[in-house]
Design a protein around this nucleic acid. Structure first.
Length: 472
RNA sequence: GGCGCCUUGGCGGAGUGGUUACGCAGAGGUCUGCAAAACCUUUUACACCGGUUCAAUUCCGGUAGGCGCCUCCA
């Protein structure tokens, strides 16, 4: 199983070989829970979910952890807006609870297996303790310094210790943007230094912290959260760190620096895997550009969240995908066709003995593609071949279910457990067929209209009528 | 300004130094009482200009256009 590694030392698809030779340990940067996730956010988690699925199907055990960033500027600001009467800490907690619940619903809706992931909140007591502990040790080790508004990490100290700041991206003074230097409003010593801890400002929630005799009540910086949560839950180094390409720098670079400053081994994770962004009208989808959609927007327009998942799987995770309604329509139609294929398992008229060899080889290709840097478009081609063949030839009642089970484990499209139609609907179907046999076309068409009103269409085959469900 | 990436048929999107993926959509036809997501056929794609090669969409160089990161960000 190969996956592309963003680390400069690799920058190519790399074999996944778990450090403990058995369990692949994955850490995925999760959402900041201050608002609904947009579909670009969700695409990152569809990527992480699919990666875990492919690794598991490749035969490894997997330990998958994802964090919730539930304390930062945005969450604090929003918590004041939504809960102005509550104390700051309580408001923040409530806001986190609310958007975590919404996020979890969105995750399930797009087919991500939430039960397979361990979620951790940045404000969990254990995480907070761990961050204070790490900051204290970084300070003692000379990698952190205290400024008026908080504690900062010193890139210079890190470099002087012989380690590389710039494992994911060449970092030089030459590629520091003018904006970053000019808009620098913090008390840090040099441009790339970043906050480990921020002192409390008026109205902000705060955790007690004393560092080297200084009262530092405040809150953690963003990067330190992931360093601590990943180590607490997975150990260090671990196998794969995922996130969107926007997190490559500075977030992941900073995580590496914090996580390895005090270690002999400068490796935080063996592989860093990043997904590309969704584009809208050729531009990155982002909250600041106001060109984003939430899952709710799609649902309100009548789209199935799984059609969005399928749309994402139709393009490679490392290529930018332009999001269009037309494209979502296409994915929705494909999803409907796949469901029609899967639903044939309930119908004798669509059953037919099929040789195992073609099923087996397509299954093999499907898995091979997923293990080749998560080439889901290629895997989907194999699935389409299989499903297309099924529609043409009928499905084998003995082989279809085990096959659907594997298809679901890889794609997460929920094709395996689709229910049969009701007895009443079966009776309608039989009555229509009887009318047809008697060439009572009027009655036959009337019964077909009835079925259609219940979302069922019928096609007449040489072995009898086969139903399929209309959209939704 | 620095670094990196991309450019494939109506749309989306794989892939390959020589044999027209795949999905969706359109057209024609088959089948059908009519239908049907069924079947067949079809719409002769690889930004542009050079180079390497027997042969380039595929390799190299350049041009144009686009995108991303360098600042919160999936």
């Amino acid at each position: 199983m190969k996956i592309y590694n963003t680390l400069l030392s690799s920058r190519k698809p790399q074999n996944i070989t778990p450090l403990d030779s058995q369990t692949v340990r994955i850490y995925s940067c999760g959402p900041t829970v201050y608002d609904h996730a947009h579909i670009g956010n969700l695409s990152a988690y569809i990527f992480a979910d699919t990666l875990r699925r492919a690794i598991a199907l490749a035969g490894f055990d997997v330990l998958h952890v994802m964090n919730y960033t539930d304390v930062d500027d945005k969450t604090i600001r929003r918590s004041h807006e939504e809960y102005p009467k509550l104390p700051a800490a309580e408001a923040l907690k409530r806001l986190g609870d609310k958007y975590i619940a919404i996020f979890a619903d969105d995750m399930r809706a797009v087919g991500n297996d939430v039960a397979a992931v361990e979620f951790i909140r940045a404000t969990d007591a254990k995480t907070i303790w761990g961050m204070k502990d790490l900051i204290t040790r970084l300070h003692a080790g000379g990698f952190a310094y205290i400024a008026d508004d908080g504690v900062y990490f010193s890139i210079e100290a890190y470099r002087k210790s012989g380690k590389t700041y710039g494992q994911l991206l060449e970092v030089t003074t030459g590629n520091t943007s003018e904006a970053r230097i000019q808009n620098d409003e913090y008390d840090k010593e040099s441009a790339h230094d970043f906050a480990l801890w921020k002192k409390q400002k008026d109205g902000e929630p705060a955790w007690d912290f004393e560092l080297d005799g200084h009262g530092m009540a405040g809150r953690p910086g963003w990067h330190i959260e992931c360093s601590v949560m990943s180590r607490q839950s997975l150990g260090q180094p671990f196998d794969i760190h995922t996130g969107g390409v926007d997190l490559i720098f500075p977030h992941h670079e900073n995580e590496i620096a914090q996580s390895t400053a005090l270690e002999k081994n400068p490796v935080m994770a063996t592989i860093f895997a990043h997904n590309e962004h969704i584009l809208i009208d050729g531009k990155k989808m982002s909250k600041s550009l106001h060109n984003f959609y939430t899952l709710e927007d799609l649902v309100q327009k009548g789209y199935d969240p799984l059609a969005f998942r399928l749309k994402m799987l139709q393009s490679h995770y490392r290529s930018q995908t332009n999001f269009t309604w037309e494209g979502l329509d296409a994915a929705g139609n494909l999803l409907q066709n796949l469901r029609a294929w899967a639903d044939q398992k309930h119908q004798k008229a669509a059953h037919k003995a099929v040789a195992s060899a073609p099923y087996a080889s397509l299954l093999k290709e499907m898995l091979a593609a997923s293990q080749d840097d998560l080439n889901m478009p290629r895997a989907l081609k194999a699935l389409a071949d299989l499903a297309g063949k099924g529609e043409a030839d009928g499905v084998d009642p003995d082989k279809i279910q085990p096959l659907l089970n594997v298809v679901d484990r890889l794609f997460g499209l929920r094709l395996a457990a689709r229910p049969d139609i009701t007895h009443a609907q079966k009776d309608l179907l039989a009555a229509r067929e009887a009318a047809r046999q008697q060439k009572d076309w009027a009655k036959s068409d009337e019964l077909r209209a009835q079925l259609q009103s219940q979302g069922l269409n019928v096609r007449d085959t040489t072995s009898g009528p086969v139903w399929y469900r209309l959209a939704a």
